[in-house]
Design a protein around this nucleic acid. Structure first.
Lengths: 246, 246
DNA sequence: AATGATGTATGATATATCTCATATTTTATA
DNA sequence: TATAAAATATGAGATATATCATACATCATT
């Protein structure tokens, strides 16, 4: 249930409150996670090309079409990747948490962002200038291989998630995102839904009304408890069964 | 319409019929496409770790769950990536053509294939032992970066394809796959459908009956012509419009 | 050439999901 | 704090898609 990245994440919150060296990568708990293969000199290159930003809930971090000129990663928070169609309707590709590289998907294959990125909670982002990042990748193939591993893993997860969504009906889709939030994001059975019902619909390609109806149904069936945005999962077993079969 | 990989592909068919050196990478038209960054020595490592296989239509190349111990790429043919559920029903993730690296998706992130691979047409596959491949990646960061680019591009395409499928209705989905086959795979307005109607359904998450009905409707509307498996696209403009809006 | 299995085709009906309408609650902003 | 805007909630009816049934065509195999 608690993997290394989560432990590091909790640890980072602690460090953030006790150290003034946060702005230097040397003391960042993500160092080992992301940049473990780098020597001090390479490390310094990254650190010098790096800026930290804080985004409040609702703020747009990147807009689709914007030129990619940095490597972004999250140290804290939660974001959504999404597209807006001509009529202004959004479709959400994924919800990403610290440890996912926010723009890793497009960074090596595209000059511009294919998806917009917005913060769902207060989000702390590290921004490394792309030229410096690529420079280090080019000169350190262990690091390149490590990036290869991560990009591959994140892509795989996104593909798997979208793929499995396709054969699910609405109940299965809602069960799936509830389990994702409870198990992968918050690691608690009680959490504040970081998105509106409409956004859940935008993520799983369903209407807002049907998301609301399904939430209500799950509540009536005793699978979850609802209090506005606060959701408590009461019956993981049944929810998992719906996820698998529905 | 005709990009470099397609020209190389056509050229490779020519080469295959006129040269006995096909088994040596040195004369493979994919050398520049895949291994352009390698020096002769690295090249030799790849070549020595390489085997060629021919698969007939319908043959399974890899089964999901099978251990990944080679890097596979297609020189000719067409394959599908798919999963089979407990009840024996297939769901197709993607149809891939030469130039796509067949197992690139999982190779760096997973020990085992997440999807089965089967040939839809006679397919020529090069199989490079993974240890040799990774060895070269580790020692040549230009090559690593190039692989990074490609893996990223292919993943992006798969994600984009599954993502756009989600908001489409059945007509849009069928239009989309017809355009994919006509424009990306065969580059002709008349082609033999390489899959059954059932498989189209497995790819776009629709029932066989509805795929058949939609084909019939497109025919009645004069958008396509149907003769068994041979499909002729008569009205690209309308089909593209359905793809976009439906 | 005969035979069974699979694929293609179409209609009728059932089911899932969407749309539209309306009411209430919560949130954002003046 | 007042007010508007957005979010939540629920029902009724419309639409899209699935399921079931049946018929015929095609393909592989004997």
């Amino acid at each position: 249930m608690y993997d290394i990245s989560h432990i590091l994440y909790i640890y980072s919150l602690f460090i953030m409150r006790t150290s003034k060296d946060i702005l230097n990568c040397k003391y960042c708990v993500y160092r080992n996670l992301l940049f473990g293969e780098l020597d001090d000199k390479e490390y310094e290159i990254i650190n010098n090309a790096r800026t930290e930003y804080v985004f409040k809930r609702g703020e747009v971090i990147k807009k689709e079409g914007e030129r990619i000129n940095s490597f972004l990663y999250m140290r804290k928070g939660l974001v959504k990747l999404y597209k807006t169609d001509r009529r202004g309707k959004d479709q959400i590709l994924s919800i990403n948490k610290p440890g996912d590289f926010i723009n890793l998907l497009n960074i090596f294959s595209n000059a511009a962002y294919k998806y917009s990125i917005a913060a769902l909670e207060e989000t702390l982002v590290c921004d490394v200038r792309l030229d410096a990042f690529i420079d280090v990748v080019k000169n350190n193939s262990d690091f390149a291989l490590s990036v290869l591993n991560r990009i591959s893993k994140i892509s795989d997860e996104t593909i798997e998630r979208r793929f499995s969504l396709a054969q699910k009906q609405i109940k299965g889709r809602v069960a799936n995102i509830l389990l994702f939030l409870a198990e992968d994001v918050y690691r608690k059975n009680k959490f504040r839904l970081p998105v509106t019902r409409r956004e859940v619909g935008e993520l799983v390609s369903m209407t807002t009304e049907n998301i609301i109806r399904t939430f209500s149904e799950f509540r009536k069936d005793g699978i979850i408890d609802l209090d506005g945005k606060v959701i408590t999962i009461l019956d993981f077993k049944r929810l998992k069964n719906i996820d698998k079969t529905g």
